[in-house]
Every structure is written in structure tokens, then in C-alpha cells.
Design a protein around this nucleic acid. Sequence first.
RNA 1: GGGGCCUUAGCUCAGCUGGCUAGAGCGCUACGUUGACAUCGUAGAGGUCACUGGUUCGAGUCCAGUAGGCCCCACCA
Length: 896
Amino acid sequence: MTDETTRHELSARFDSTGIEAPVYARWLERGGFHVDAANVAAPYVIAIPPPNVTAALHMGHGLNNTIQDVLVRFQRMRGRDAVWIPGTDHAGIATQNVVERDMAKEGLTRHDVGRDRFVDRVWEWVDRYGSTIIEQLKTMGCSCDWERTRFTLDEGLSRAVREVFVRLYAKGLIYRGNYIINWCPRCLTALSNEEAEHQEIQGKLYHIRYPLADAEGEYVVVATTRPETMLGDTAVAVHPEDERNRNLVGREVELPLVGRRIEVIADEHVDPEFGSGFVKVTPAHDPNDFEIGLRHDLERVDIMNGDATIGDEAPSAYRGLDRFEARKRVLEDLESLGLLVEVEDHEHSVGHCYRCGTAVEPRLSLQWFVRMKPLAEPALEAYRDGRLRFHPERFGNTYEYWMTSVRDWCISRQLWWGHRIPVWYCQECDGMIVTLDDPSACTTCGGAVEQDPDVLDTWFSSWLWPFSTLGWPADTPDMEALYPTHTLSTAPEILFFWVARMVMAGLEFTGDLPFTDVLLHGTVRDVQGRRMSKSLGNGIDPLEVVRRFGADAMRFTLVSSAALGTDLQLDHEDLDSSFRVGRNFANKMWNAVRFGLGYLTEDDLQTVPTDTRLELTDRWILARFAATAAAVTDALERFRLHDAAETTYQFVWGEFCDWYLELVKARLRGDRGEESRSAAGATLAFVLDGWLRLLHPIMPFITEEMYCHLPGRNDEDSLLHGPWAAADLEQLAAADAESAVTGLQEIVGAVRNLRSDYGIDPSKRVGVMVARAPASVAAAVADELEGLLRLGRMSSLEIVGSIPAGEPGAHAVLRSGAEVFLPLAGIVDIEKERDRIRSEIERLESLLEGSRRRLEDPRFVEQAPAEVVKREREKSRSCEERLSLLVEKRAVFGSG
RNA sequence: GGGGCCUUAGCUCAGCUGGCUAGAGCGCUACGUUGACAUCGUAGAGGUCACUGGUUCGAGUCCAGUAGGCCCCACCA
């Protein structure tokens, strides 16, 4: 689109359709996102939080990936070798569930087809749907280095997983043991502590009588929220110092419904104040009881099957019942025996499977664990000594707390989809082999070996992501050039699951922090403040938003609504209200550029325009641009993307479009001669080009498209690699131009205000007088007269020595000290004018009073910074001046 | 039971190291087809910055407490 005709045929309304795809295709064709490890001088690397391979894009992805793209594009434009590593996660439970559900439609379970065929089927699924989200990221404009796309089950990454398992095992940091773990009876697998989500449940506390075995009529009362577990009780405990009850220690009770005799023991865990002071002890079904059992060498009676039905260790009457069914039955039976003493409401929290929502069952089972303490120490140290930073900072507390109270990590999962645990058991002797390469026989006795059937927790591969994606454990050029990475952007809810563990893994296996800055973004919510979710049906499909409003509009809206550390609300029922801001802004940009293109020539586009030809407004907008560029750069460096968006928006719309374009129109048309036209053209082109750069990280498509339309440029050009903003922007500072133009804006503002107050027909041009304007403002008025006349709908704007006394008209006294007068013979309303002046006097008086009070306080003058005192004096003086003028005016209108 | 966050215009929220005559977008009211833009322009109304106390020359901003809302963590049955 380089020829003249096309250029001038840009439609008045910006339509993202038909622009985004070709622009993205151009970037890809040129390999614009790829960086060769051999050529890396100043790396900037982000590893994407790999979405689940079966996931479809939602707004959370929209936000997070926009943030990452902004950061990557910003650094790429600044000349860094920016690499954004994309990929997906095999997401063990989630993916297995999806495929199982799919199979269920055919009436099949995974057990019907067997392990190998099931895994094949998941792979087919992944091959078919696995690239969906990657394609969606492209639609959003994400500038990932697609040549580096990885999947956690790739051969290389799987190798890394094995390497880590073997290393940790050799170091004694991985062990296998029988412990109480969180078990999901629906997914039929162990879960880690993090995967059990605690929810407050409005439950009951049941008080049950356990008769003493050899004393008719005597009993103890235990309290429990899960009465069905009594079938597995193997003791009753009291606190060793419980005065009331410790005399019973050593006696036996007869477990109702079961008949087993169990001992009363003394254990510190019991809170003598709670309930009756007796605790039923079920070592196989409660983590605390398990610990008690260890201390007292209690029997562990496991009464439940994996699917949470009652098992063979329980009395036959209950076998086969689901746990909740069994609870009901147990309660009924206790009730009929007169042993259920009391039922009270009791709120408590119960773990739920983070994938399917089923209430987790604490279950005794043989699992693999990672010892976390030794890994946590260096990870904590890295945070404490400031090498690892969180944005917002407060998440450091959360991280620190988790690291100091971290518990061992259960990593084995009874699933089929995932990395198989690299452990083999000998079928002949008790040999166990933990090895990188599949063994063919037992290394001790030569017997046949069989691999552990379990797979590893998904997060056991995710925690290696920042380096496994770069080829670790091999010493690859990518590892050499691109590791460690720099920024990690993610949602706070996976701080423990993922972020904390990556830090541990990075330090343990590579000796480096995997990244230095962790950006935790907010949550996308609906208008009621609820999280967006499939089940609530309140989600927003980013692709629909892109289709209707454009990717840039979506990205701008997301970035500008998400201040660092805060959640953002979007209306899923009214996408228009949610994304209008971004769409309108894109349209504004489009039209501003469209306007510029009507006047600019190739010669206008040059380096920083600093010639003496520059006029006041040129110097003003250049100064404003320099300030904006500095603020935006600073904001992006500090991860304050919202500020960057806000600042540019205000500059482009509120200063560039509202004032500069308006003031410069006549000059661009050549009304003031070629010298003036070319100064305006050069300035316009420079500033336009400049803010396109500033906005490119946030709105890559429209900025690229517009950039290529600028005179002398074509599709071969690109903003992708910057430069970010021209060097030497400091030289553009022009405090004098800034204050002069502010003075002009005030005058126009006052005229518009007066017109509006007096209801003057917008089509009627008025003559205006200005007195007492500072010299610089007066000069500026003369320079920019025609523009000002148009903006204020004035027929004339005269600089006068003083406003003629007694003439009927409207007055305004400005902050610059200038006085604006609008003669209104026959129109002016004396009463109204008097009121206007009076209220202005009142306002200024109260302002002045406050200011004086401050200045009269010697402590303020002595202790406040000189700059503040100076400003206060100026404010005071300006108020006084304006007041005295207004008082004079009032005299003219009578004191009323 | 611990820890954290929030409470600023009708709505959604900015306001980072205390100096504010408290901002933005949307909405509202009035007016407007001004040759880039009605996805626009102009003006306006609208706020005791939750409450109470403290620190300070000065507090929306810091500290303590109160009230309301939210989140994270947690093996008291």
C-alpha cells in the first residue's frame, strides 16, 4: 500500500478487519520474532506460562499474553535480542479428563481400551486440538519465537524431567513412602497439597458415645465431622495433661458398630478444650491421626477403596457403600443404638480436587515425594537478598511464607497421561532401579523389571520450563545465550504451583535464578466481581473481541484497565461497553494519521527537527512528546503498563489531536508559507512517527500499518525492531513553549466557557479581548491567531492594555494572570455576571486563605522543600492578583 | 486461626517515594454536521478521598483502631 491512490483512500472509520492478518503474516515471513542464539548480544527472554494443551483462549490468557507481548516488543524495539518462548503444557489430569469424557460418549472408559491405546488416543487428541491456542495467540498479535515452540512432553523436555528425577533421587531428595496424601476419588489419583483447594463447608460436628470396654454404663464421647471414618478407628486420644480425662488413659473402649477394642492413649495433639476432650484416632484416614499413629505405633485400618466406597476392612454391612452413603448409614445405626449424643452445625474447610471439584479424601498410600526444605532455602535466600523481585512487591510476603512452611511434594499420580516415573522394580528380588535409560533387567539379580506404573505431577515438568525449553540438561547454544530468562508474567494463583518451584529448580539444577522479575497480574472478573469461568457462563471469548473490535482495541483496553496488582472488570453481556475505549482510540489514531497523510511529504519525515524554523507550537508538541516518551519508557521499565497506556492516550488524544493538529492545520495548508509549512510538516511527521513507536508494544497492528503508510515508507518497513524513540529527546525540552501554550489553552478554554455560559450560538463568532497576558503568552497569541480564532469560534482576539471599564461583557481572570473579556452588548446579563464574579471571588479567597495560612507558618517556610514554598508563594501571589482584578470588576457591576 | 488487599465522582477505576486548587474513561445534562475523526467536538453538573484517632509545617497518600467487602494460606477433630 505505497501508491498515492491507496494512501488517500483510507476510510474515515478504522476497521481492523483485513489489516491484522496480513501484518502478522509479514512479521512471520521476515522471521521478525526469531532470534538466532549465535547472534545474541543483549538478550531479553520471557518463557510463556505454557497453557494447557487442550485449552482455548480466555480473557486471562488475553491479559497475560498481552502483557508479555508488550514487554517483549518494548525490549525488542530498544534493541534487545528479545525472545519469547512459547509452548504448551500436557496438563496431566486436565487433559486425561477431557479425553476420558470424550470416550465416555462412546460408552468407553480408559480401562476398556488399556493404557497404551489410551495414551495413543490422548496423543491423537493433542495432535488435533493442541495447536488451537497457539493459533489464537497469533490472532492476538503475540510475537513469540515460534521456532522455539515446546511441549512439556517433547522428547527433550521429557529427558530433562528424567534427569531431574534421577538427580534428586541420587541426592536423597526424592523418596517413596506410605503417607496420608490428598486423594481424588473421581480422578483416582493422588494430589499435591497445592492441588487440593480448601473450601469452607457448612458441615456438622457429630458427638458419638464410645462405651468403655469393661465398665458397664461408662463411656467417652468423641466428636467428628466424618463419622464414617470411625470404622477405621484404632484408638481414642486425650491430652496427657487433661485433668478430667487422663485417668482413662490405658483403658479400652469398644468401638461401636465394629466391636474392636481400642485403647485410650495420651497425645499432645488433642486440644482438651475442644468438645469433650476425646479424639477418635483413624490413622489411615486423617493426617493428624496418622501422626498420632506413628507416635503410638497404632494399627492403620484402611476402610476405603480408591473410589471412596467402603472396603473390606470395614464391617460387611457397610462394604460397597459410597462414603457419604456410609456416613448416613453409620449415623442411623449409631442413633438407633443411642450412641449419637449430639449433632451441631460446624463450619470447616474441606479440600477439593482442583481439576474436578470432588471432595478430596485423605488417603494412606504409597507415593513418591520430593523433600522440599533443602530446595526452599536457596530460593528463599534469593528473594531475601533482592535478586528475585515481585511486582507488586506484596507477593514477596506470600512467597516467603510458603517457602518457610513448605511441605514435601507428592509427585506421583495414578494417571496414564504424563511422564512415567523412571523407576523399575525387579520382579525377582527387591531391587529398584532409578535411571535415565530404560533398563532391560535387574542390575542386582538379572531378573525381569517392571516400570513404576505411575506418572509424575504435571508441575514436575513445568518447574523446569525456563530451561528445559532451552535444551537443558544439554549445554546448548540456547542455554548459553538465552538463560537465565528475565521476566515472568503470570497469575498469582500459581505462585506456589509453579513460580516458587521454578525458582527452586532453577537454583538447584542450573545454579541460576530462572528469572529475576515476577509480574503477577490481576484477575479478569465480570461486572459482579466474579471470576470468569466456563461453569458460570460469564466468560468472554477473546477471538470474538478481536473479530468485533480488533486485537489492538482488546489489548489496549486490557492493558489500560489492569493497573499493577489490581483486578479488572469486564462486562460479558456488553462487550461494546467494555472494549469501546480501545476501539475508539484506535479509530482516533487512524484518523490522526489519515489527516497527517494528507499533508506530509517524504521530506517531512526526518530525524529530530531542531531547526530554528520551528515555531512555538512545534517546540511545544516536541517537548510534550519528549516528556511523554520519557514517562512511557519509565512506566514500561517498571512494569506499570497501565501508566504507559494512560500516558500515551492522554498525549495522543488530549494534546496531539486536540491541540497540535488543530493549531497547525493552516500552516500545513501552506497559509504561512513554505518555511512554516515544512517546520510543521517535519514536526508533525516526527511526533506522529514517535507516538506510533510508543504505542507499538500495546497496539502492534495499527501502529505497524500506519507506520508503513507514512510518506516514503512501505510494507518493507517495520516498527518491530524500533528504534524505540529517537535519541536526544532531552534537547526537545522547551519550558517556555510549554508555559506559553498552556496560556493559549487557558484563553481558548475561557472563551469556550463564557460562550457556553451565555448560551452563545456556536455558529456566532465573537470578538475577544485579552489584557495583562504575560509577554510570552501575548506573543504566542499573535503567532497562533488564526488557529485560536477557529478553536474559540472568535472573529477577533485582541491583545489590549486594559479592558475598557464599564463596557458590558463577560470577564474571566486566568491562572496566568491574563484577563479575558467578551463584549456582549445587549446579551450580557448583569445579574449573572455578578454571580459569576462573586463565586469566583469566593473560590479564590478560600484558596488564598489556605495558602496564606501555610506561608505565615514559619515552620512551613523553614521545613518544607524550597520548591514547595516557592510554588506556594506563586500561588498566593497569583490568587491575590486575580482577586484584586475581580474585585475591580465587581465594582463595575455594583456590589450586588 | 494466620497473612494480604480493597473502600476516592452515578459506574469502573488511576492517584507509585506525603505538597492536590483530587484525575481518567464511561454514564448524565446542554449545545454542535467547525473539510482527520459523530467510534467525533465543546461546555457543564457530580467527590466532607468509608469512619475514628495519631504522626507531620502539611495526609487521599504514613501509623493505629473501627465498620463493610474480597483474596490467599491453614492437619484443631
